[in-house]
Design a protein around this nucleic acid. Structure first.
Lengths: 217, 217
DNA sequence: TAACATACATACTGGTTGGTATGTTGGCCA
DNA sequence: TGGCCAACATACCAACCAGTATGTATGTTA
């Protein structure tokens, strides 16, 4: 009489259930890693949050490390792509406006600010300790930087971005500012710090506009 | 016949030995926290590195948390003061030159870059989890920001810094840049990233100089 | 020199960790 | 309808964790 706590599955195929279990594990792991870091996130806690058992976890993932890597690939990477890569690739807006829009889209709700940036959190903790994490996270950072550099180069060819700006350098600096302010705001546990940071970053972005191409302010 | 592994102490007073033990614990803890984070740093490992026993540890500190707090107060805080607060207070250099000097003094040896910034590491990990850490680290960040803002204000009164610069904002932005680049370099595990970041920060600092007060380049 | 406090050293504990070994169940196919 | 396998569920384990209880060598004081 083991393994029958829940009502038996009715019509849904087993395969669909399996994918759902995997997804719940990824979401729970992502949340717990966000809360307390990868190393300190307990598998038992993740399982409790996900509402699945250890057997299910180790059916889908070989180890805690593999689960963490999957979180990077399947949760964090799509998130960065959705917020920083795709919006900049659309090519509809003026490049500087597009970057300002992305910066102003950074969440500033208390819960988000206090938790910091998921990408940066994991990178800080795991990059020196685990090459698997490091490589996956580096791919995300590279894509981010390249997306920013790309719009800056485009802006230069269209004359809206200053020619003396080095796109790769400026992209790195933007990301450093974003992550740096996220760190300061997380440490202060105060959304005001992040809001002030966004204002300063936006001010710096405006300074990249080519003279005679200023739209407003 | 317990507790006589080592030669009996000869002439040194007990009090001196005690202080030395405490200091070794702080240094070992600082190193291990730097390597793997506070939560993942094992007390047994710290003790092995320090070459002392658990009895000694719990004679000097009430708990692992108290040891961590002491590392912040007695290792990290003096380090930041020595590198960022005192050099800026001396008032001998031109303010912008002083800031450039501090930025260029950031260590870029592989070991330093790969480990990241001790202050930022701990803040990222512990600020959301432990108010004792958060308050101590916030004091350090505040002192750092205030030291930078102070020289900028001084530069404005002496005419060497642009008047439209908001010292508090610029100080926060500088710190965000420094910590942001430290994060990126740590993730990339590559000193080149930090060196490029320092160049970009220095370039930004030069842009704060008042017109007609440019010293070189 | 006897009593005492300081500064440890050692052994141990209960709880937690990631991981494993072994069941069990329901759908599916021959 | 009997066998098979994906997809779990449960119980368990050795290692490790922070912390504690207790012992003891040594300098200081009365």
């Amino acid at each position: 009489m083991l393994a029958t706590r829940k009502n038996p599955k009715r019509r849904a195929t087993r395969l669909r259930d399996s994918e759902r279990t995997r997804e719940r594990l990824l979401q729970a792991a992502s949340r717990e890693i966000y809360r307390s870091g990868f190393q300190s996130a307990s598998l038992d806690t993740i399982l409790a949050v996900a509402g699945v058992t250890k057997g299910a976890l180790y059916y889908h993932f070989d180890s805690k490390e593999a689960l963490g890597h999957a979180v990077v690939d399947e949760v964090i990477a799509p998130d960065v792509r959705g917020k920083w890569v795709r919006p900049l690739q659309s090519g509809k807006d003026d490049p500087i406006d597009a970057l300002i829009g992305a910066v102003q889209g950074i969440p500033v709700r208390p819960a988000d600010v206090r938790g910091g940036c998921q990408l940066n959190n994991l990178a800080q903790e795991m990059s020196p300790l685990d090459a698997g994490f490091r490589k996956r996270l580096a791919i995300i950072f590279d894509a981010w930087r390249e997306a920013v550099a790309f719009v800056l180069r485009e802006g230069q060819t269209h004359g809206s971005v200053r020619r003396d700006v080095e796109p790769a350098d400026a992209a790195g600096l933007l990301i450093a500012m974003v992550e740096g302010y996220a760190s300061l705001a997380k440490n202060a546990q105060d959304p005001k710090v992040m809001k002030a940071g966004i204002r300063n970053i936006v001010g710096w972005l405006r300074s990249l506009r080519a003279p005679g191409n200023r739209k407003r302010g």
